[in-house]
């Protein structure tokens, strides 16, 4: 109306154009504000300090809640079917199936006779698993003496090829049954496996005969390094088994958590593993999930237990994820270990 009025009274073409110009500026501003709200939501959570306080208030008290566990497993099974779908298998991805990348906007790869033989026949895990331990890489694990606790679990899941050298054994344990590997690690640490592959193969020996879980079909640049990791392990007849994460499963898990208020471009590997464990195991304990720079005793905590390299800032929403997990902890569905583990007799 304003524009109409303007055009009638002044009759100038120029001014209309000027208003249009202003309109586009307004539109751009609106988009910017919307983006701003998307990245920094107003409803975003309590500050770090409040979370720490709440955790302290809760203390060591934890009560297992079987109905909660069953309920969650049902929810996850309904949305994502972790038992069948968590890895790309010959069963769920026959030749010719199109795998849509979950971390790309519009990109796919068809299963052909180059990739098909690399998949396992079917879900190789013997279900149901009893006691699972999901080990994050948070700095809070350092000096936690949780190693023995973790090793007692029936199935240990770890994230992103963490170091398991002697210095850390007391805190993080030695056993591994499944370890995820981000293709970016392969790219950075092992020169994309284009040159010498010995370093990679040797460093994988720490994980014994576990499963390597790689999100090969999530990001476009991640596919080749992941396949190359498979070739490297197969060439040396290693006893590790490579599982490729199913992009469908990852997407549905992402949507599951988005519906529960985790706003991030992508979930962290830790949350994927916890969801997987909740769907597969009867009892889940999570260690080393602590995305804050201050510990419970107000002491600074490094980002990882092995280094303090901070991640790319707006990619993961770790604190939000932590709040979600903590709610599950409070309801007794899973157990979070955020402090030291009690010394065992």
């Amino acid at each position: 109306m304003l524009r109409l009025f303007c055009a009638k009274t002044r009759g100038g073409n120029m001014l209309v154009r000027c208003y249009r110009g202003k309109l586009s500026v307004w539109a751009a501003l609106c988009v910017l504000v919307l983006c701003w709200f998307y990245i920094f939501p107003v409803y975003r959570l309590p500050r770090d300090k409040d979370i720490v306080e709440e955790v302290l208030r809760q203390g060591e008290a934890w009560q297992k809640n079987q109905t909660g566990i069953d309920h969650y497993r049902k929810l996850l099974t309904e949305c994502c079917e972790p038992r069948k779908m968590f890895a790309v298998t010959k069963e769920n991805s026959p030749m010719g199936k199109v795998l849509w990348y979950d971390g790309e906007f519009y990109h796919s790869r068809t299963v052909n006779n180059e990739t098909y033989p690399l998949f396992v026949q079917e879900n190789p895990l013997q279900l149901p698993l009893k006691k699972c331990a999901v080990v994050g890489n948070g700095g809070i694990l350092r000096n936690s003496k949780c190693g023995r606790d973790i090793d007692q679990a029936d199935f240990v899941l770890r994230c992103n090829l963490p170091p398991l050298s002697k210095d850390y054994v007391e805190d993080v344990g030695t056993k591994t049954h499944m370890v995820t590997a981000n293709p970016s690690i392969v790219e950075k640490r092992f020169q994309n496996l284009l040159w010498s592959r010995k370093a990679f193969v040797d460093s994988m020996k720490v994980y014994g005969s576990s499963y390597i879980y790689m999100p090969a079909f999530s990001m476009k640049p991640g596919t080749d390094p992941s396949l190359r990791a498979y070739y490297a392990l197969a060439d040396t007849s290693s006893n590790l088994t490579m599982l490729f994460a199913n992009p469908e499963f990852l997407r549905s898990v992402g949507q599951f958590w988005k519906g529960r208020g985790v706003h991030a471009k992508r979930l962290s590997t830790g949350l994927f593993l916890v969801s997987l464990a909740l769907g597969l195991c009867e009892e889940v304990t999570a260690y080393g999930f602590w995305p804050f720079s201050v510990g419970l005793d107000e002491q600074p905590v490094s980002h990882h237990y092995y280094d303090n390299i901070l991640p790319y800032k707006w990619f993961h929403a770790m604190p939000e994820e932590f709040v979600q997990l903590w709610q599950l902890h409070k309801s007794g569905t899973l157990r979070m270990r955020v402090g030291c583990c009690p010394p065992q007799e």
């Binding site: 592959r197 080749d224 070739y231 490297a232 197969a234 060439d235």
Partner: peptide, 9 residues
């Protein structure tokens, strides 16, 4: 040699 290497070996 970007993929399998054993055949060449």
């Amino acid at each position: 040699l970007e993929k399998w290497r054993r055949p060449f070996y």
